[in-house]
Computed example of a mutant assay.
Amino acid sequence: MGPKLMSSIASLFLLGALLQVVSAVDHDVGGDFGWNLPPNTTFFSDWASNKAFSVGDKLVFRSKANEMHDVAEPNSEVDLDGCVKPGIVFSTSAVFSVALDRPGRRYFICTIGNHCNAGMKFDIDVLAQPGAPNSPLVPPPPPSSASSLRFGALLAAFSGLLLTIVA
């Protein structure tokens, strides 16, 4: 292979790796089930517990057309547990998204009827950057295929950069 072709290939690897590292994720709340009355009170907490959320990601709340739900963000865990309706309710539309624009703990509930007490509530930890804990006291999440892909993307980026320099 000629040096020009090697340089082009390395540049493509570098570009692909960088796009993978900085890409945000849209999380469909509740997966295929959506933001609807859950089958049990821990459904949404269970859904959120095995996800990693980072600044730049979005939560997408999708409700069935025949069900009325909203999205509100309580101020604290006490308010989440007690299903306390905050002063601002975000939406009553069938599809609504919330940008995760700052690191830290975030809480979400449905304030309509008894929906929150029925389990339409959850909390998440939003990381400052993918794979970075919010504080030294918070242990990092267990390795996942997403973090392995990010590591692989970084490795590919550095390899591509090295090949470009050497060639």
Rank of each mutant, 00 (worst) to 15 (best):
R106S: 04
R106E: 04
R106F: 08
R106N: 03
R106P: 00
R106K: 10
R106T: 00
Y107V: 01
Y107K: 05
Y107H: 01
F108I: 03
F108V: 04
F108K: 01
I109S: 08
C110K: 04
T111K: 01
T111R: 04
T111H: 02
I112F: 09
I112P: 07
I112G: 09
I112Q: 00
G113Y: 05
G113P: 02
G113M: 11
N114L: 09
N114G: 09
H115Y: 09
C116E: 01
C116N: 00
C116L: 06
C116A: 02
C116Q: 06
A118L: 10
A118S: 12
G119D: 12
G119R: 00
M120G: 07
K121T: 03
K121A: 00
K121Q: 05
F122W: 01
F122L: 10
F122N: 10
F122A: 10
F122Y: 12
D123C: 07
I124C: 05
V126K: 06
V126A: 08
V126I: 09
A128K: 08
A128T: 10
Q129S: 08
Q129M: 01
Q129G: 08
P130C: 00
P130N: 00
P130S: 03
G131V: 04
G131N: 02
G131K: 03
G131C: 05
P133Y: 00
N134K: 07
N134I: 07
S135I: 03
P136D: 00
P136M: 00
P136G: 02
L137A: 09
L137C: 05
V138H: 08
P139E: 01
P139D: 04
P140W: 06
P140F: 11
P140T: 07
P141D: 10
P141Y: 12
P141R: 14
P142D: 08
P142Y: 12
P143L: 02
P143T: 01
S144C: 11
S144M: 03
S145I: 15
S145H: 13
S145Q: 14
A146N: 06
S147Y: 07
S147K: 04
S148W: 11
S148N: 05
L149Q: 14
L149F: 14
L149H: 12
L149V: 14
R150W: 13
R150M: 09
G152M: 06
G152N: 03
G152D: 02
A153K: 02
A153L: 03
L154Y: 14
L155D: 11
L155S: 12
L155I: 15
A156G: 04
A156I: 06
A157P: 12
S159P: 06
S159D: 11
S159F: 15
G160N: 03
G160H: 01
G160Y: 10
L161D: 13
L161I: 15
L161N: 12
L162D: 02
L162H: 12
L163D: 05
L163K: 03
T164I: 15
T164G: 09
T164R: 15
I165G: 07
I165K: 13
